[in-house]
Amino acid sequence: MNIDALNWKILSCLQENARMSNTEIGRKVGVSSPAVSERIKKMEDLGVIENYHTTISSFEAGYQLKALITLRAFMGKLKPFLEKVKTYDEVVNCYRITGNENIVMEVVLKNQKHLENFIDQLIVYGETKTQIVLSHVVKNKAIKKP
């Protein structure tokens, strides 16, 4: 889908606040609420808009640690890991990547002991490297018109 300037304005509003009403979006972009609704529906149907979600503070939810863990899978262990990783509650994002490692995961953990136990589950699949996140520098940055 070729996203026109008006759709980019609508997407910008939704990225700013996904709960913004179609009426408010229409006021901001200069079209009627039904026109906004129709455009949003079309972008949803075409997969431009994938989902809407709530961001939860992991710290406030009881997870004191956030970490990035890379995995370099052992021979024959990548495919089993790709299925297993979907079952780990600790993993909030997981990417298959290029380079020396195969996987990078963003994980939330209650404490250091939880991290140790989690790594113990991973090492049967490959070699891990762990970095503790100190702070979030860029958060859910909006995608802009290219």
Results as ranks from 00 to 15, higher is better:
M1I: 02
I3V: 14
D4M: 03
A5Q: 13
N7V: 01
N7W: 02
W8D: 01
K9Y: 01
L14H: 04
L14F: 02
E16S: 09
N17Q: 11
N17C: 05
N17R: 13
R19C: 01
M20P: 00
S21L: 02
N22I: 00
N22F: 14
T23A: 13
E24D: 15
I25C: 02
I25N: 00
R27W: 07
R27A: 14
K28W: 01
V29Y: 08
G30M: 12
G30W: 08
V31N: 00
V31T: 12
V31I: 15
S32C: 04
S33M: 11
S33W: 03
P34W: 11
A35I: 05
A35C: 03
V36Q: 05
S37T: 10
S37L: 08
R39C: 03
R39A: 08
I40Q: 03
E44C: 06
E44Y: 03
D45A: 13
G47S: 04
V48P: 07
I49H: 03
E50D: 10
N51V: 00
N51D: 13
Y52A: 00
Y52S: 06
T54N: 11
I56R: 05
I56W: 06
I56Y: 15
S57K: 10
S58C: 03
S58A: 15
S58Y: 11
E60W: 02
A61F: 12
G62I: 09
Y63A: 01
Y63Q: 01
Y63N: 11
Q64M: 10
L65V: 10
L65H: 11
A67V: 08
T70M: 12
L71Q: 01
L71Y: 05
L71W: 05
F74L: 12
M75L: 06
M75C: 00
M75G: 00
M75I: 12
G76R: 07
L78D: 02
P80K: 08
P80D: 01
F81M: 09
L82K: 14
E83W: 08
V85M: 10
K86Q: 14
K86M: 12
E90D: 07
E90N: 11
V91D: 04
V91W: 03
V91M: 00
V92K: 14
C94E: 00
Y95T: 04
Y95R: 09
G99Y: 07
G99W: 10
N100L: 12
N100G: 15
E101G: 00
V104C: 10
M105F: 09
E106M: 09
E106Y: 05
V107W: 10
L109Y: 05
Q112G: 04
Q112W: 07
H114K: 08
L115K: 10
L115T: 05
E116M: 06
N117W: 02
F118M: 07
I119G: 05
L122F: 10
I123K: 15
I123F: 03
V124K: 14
G126S: 12
G126W: 12
G126H: 12
E127Y: 12
E127W: 05
K129E: 14
T130V: 15
T130P: 04
T130D: 06
T130H: 06
T130Y: 06
Q131D: 07
Q131M: 13
I132G: 03
I132R: 08
V133M: 07
S135L: 07
H136M: 09
V137D: 10
V138T: 11
N140D: 15
N140C: 06
A142G: 08
A142E: 15
K144S: 12
K145E: 15
P146M: 05
